[in-house]
């Protein structure tokens, strides 16, 4: 928990680094500072999906502490859903600034939208299974299957459409060219947002555990 509380210190430093310390990028200018918030948020939305899927696998293998593990997968997905929506909104603002349109059906935009649809489908499935005692099994199976399909998506989508994303458009040799200071800042903010995710995740898990224990003591 102490590790996650570092976010209180790291987040202000990260905001300082990204807004004041880093020089603006060549072509995009000051608008390039969106990068340092957009990329970590996108990273967290994929990470949360991964964590939810891994918890589902653990749940199906171990079949113990069912309610807690199910809540853990659900909480991670809930945080991931919020971060996915944030990714979509911040990404479309950036797209408007740099490409002139809010939405281009660029491959990464497509994959984040499909991720969002998977999250929405998971939550609708979860709420439709409310009365089913086997909810943990079914919702975990859905998460696992979508986690298997996700790599296929990441694999195919860029092959179908050409990408507009910065790392292939700013420079000709199709590699990420960031100056050292930019790279440090980006890495710093990715770590900070991961800690933020972990912090919120831990809090929600603790709460879920309290609720589960309370209800089980009620029943007895």
């Amino acid at each position: 928990m102490f590790l996650y509380r570092l976010v209180y210190v790291l987040m202000p430093i990260g905001i300082f680094l990204s807004l004041l310390w880093v020089p603006p990028a060549n072509i995009l200018g000051d608008a390039s500072r969106i990068l340092y918030f957009h990329v970590p948020v996108a990273w967290v939305s994929f990470l949360a999906f991964l964590v939810a899927g891994l918890h589902s696998i653990a749940l199906l293998i171990k079949k113990s502490e069912i309610l807690y593990r199910e809540a853990m997968a659900y909480n991670s997905a809930a945080i991931g859903m919020v971060f996915t929506v944030l990714t979509v909104i911040t990404g479309s603002i950036w797209a408007k600034v740099s490409w002139g349109h809010f939405w281009n059906w660029d491959p990464r935009e497509t994959s984040i939208v499909i991720l969002m649809l998977i999250y929405i489908a998971y939550f609708s499935l979860f709420s439709a299974l409310k009365s089913n005692p086997n909810r943990w099994g079914i919702s975990s199976v859905y998460l696992i299957i979508s986690m298997i399909i996700a790599p296929f998506l990441i694999f195919i989508v860029p092959r179908v459409y050409p990408s507009l994303h910065p790392d292939t458009i700013i420079n000709q040799d199709k590699k990420i060219h960031l100056e050292a200071s930019m790279r440090i800042t980006l890495f710093f903010l990715v770590v900070t947002f991961t800690l933020l995710y972990g912090y919120i995740y831990k809090i929600t898990n603790k709460l879920s555990l309290i609720i589960i224990k309370l209800r089980s003591s009620h029943d007895i």
Partner: peptide, 17 residues
């Protein structure tokens, strides 16, 4: 088939996959 809202949910959960 195991859920309460069948036909409409099928479209929702099968579309992204």
């Amino acid at each position: 088939a195991k859920t309460s809202m069948r036909s409409s949910l099928f479209t929702v959960i099968s579309f992204p996959l």
